[in-house]
Nucleic acid binder design. Structure first.
Lengths: 186, 186
DNA sequence: TGCATTTCTTGATTTAGGTCAAGGATTCCT
DNA sequence: AGGAATCCTTGACCTAAATCAAGAAATGCA
């Protein structure tokens, strides 16, 4: 079944809905569940209906680096794996109990065939992700740790309620100590 | 006309080619030409057939920050503008004389309709871009300036022949002085 | 409820890379 | 070819944030 949020937002006509609905599967997963594990090949496109996913990788020296967080109403997949069918470097783990929809890569062609509305919508969300990544990149390159922290606090205050600080630190590209110090001064 | 590289790589059947070929326009632009200027709304998807594009933005304090470079055989557009029809923050300028193809956003639907091969290919390249951005982000957050420089030198040595050093410095997220110093030691 | 584990904070010290400044080397233009 | 921009290099100094270390707080679990 197609998630109601997508039907509304992407304005998927009900004629499309009948045809592509069966391609989507609904899942309820608990906190701690891995959607994708590093080293595996990912052939699934996920849609987060409710919940929160942390995407991270492990560095050569064994540290975990949070690449980013994805919240409800986002598509996620391992970009470095999905099309190329190579093992991904990333882990996708749920930080909250979540409702997730999945679409298999093998059904993508059918989806493109049967619903332009959804195809355009996925294009759209992918470009938004690219825009977000580009923004993050500019931030981490040319803003101070303090500015990045203040901006996150301004733009996504709820993340501080939902995610432990060490993950946020590595998302910001700083150490937990530095984050702690910045929080201390008002 | 569809660029030959795409026809081959995306395996676009000649039946599709006839239908979507007319949607693409070929351009020859000189070094220094702006494909996209910040503040404008971008409704065009470009494909770089030959050449090199520098994508940069201007910070609050008036500095230019190179987000990244795109070389031949890449699709480029202002992700923060294309779908949302909001003014982009980025400039796309040619660093070499280039052959560029363009597709108007208004023709995207037709393209999706007429060629699944190309639609899939554009999905594919967009995910590759997202993978690249994610990689860059991890690099800039958790590798030293020196490591980032060495990696770039290893992975894309030709960029040093094609692009001036101050642009490469801001791509790496360092100052020109630091880049110069790193080049000096062997 | 109480113990153990994990997470967060605070302090002292170090360092990578930034800033400022001035001299060379290129490139561009007529 | 010669002068003017622009770009790159080198040096001296400084600062933001990392590292190392140890205690406090929160969370999980029997």
């Amino acid at each position: 079944m197609l998630p109601p949020y997508i039907i509304e937002t992407a304005k998927v006509p009900s004629s499309d809905e009948e045809k592509i609905g069966p391609l989507f599967k609904k899942h309820v997963f608990s906190k701690g569940h891995f959607l994708i594990r590093e080293g595996t090949i990912c052939k699934t496109l996920f849609f987060i209906d409710t919940g929160l996913v942390r995407i991270y990788r492990t560095t050569d020296d064994g540290n975990e680096v949070t690449a980013f967080f994805m919240v409800e109403h986002s598509f996620v997949t391992a970009f470095d794996s999905f099309y190329k069918s190579t093992p991904t470097k990333y882990n996708f783990v749920l930080l909250e109990d979540s409702v997730i929809y999945s679409l298999q890569q093998s059904d993508l062609e059918t989806m493109i065939d049967k619903s332009h509305a959804l195809t355009k919508f996925i294009f759209h969300t992918t470009y938004e992700l690219a825009a977000r990544l580009t923004e993050l990149l500019a931030n981490v390159k040319f803003r101070t740790a303090e500015e990045r922290y203040r901006n996150l606090l301004r733009d996504s205050p709820s993340i501080f309620q939902r995610v432990q600080l060490s993950y946020i630190a590595s998302y910001l590209g700083i150490t937990p100590e530095t984050l702690s110090r910045m929080r201390a001064k008002k």
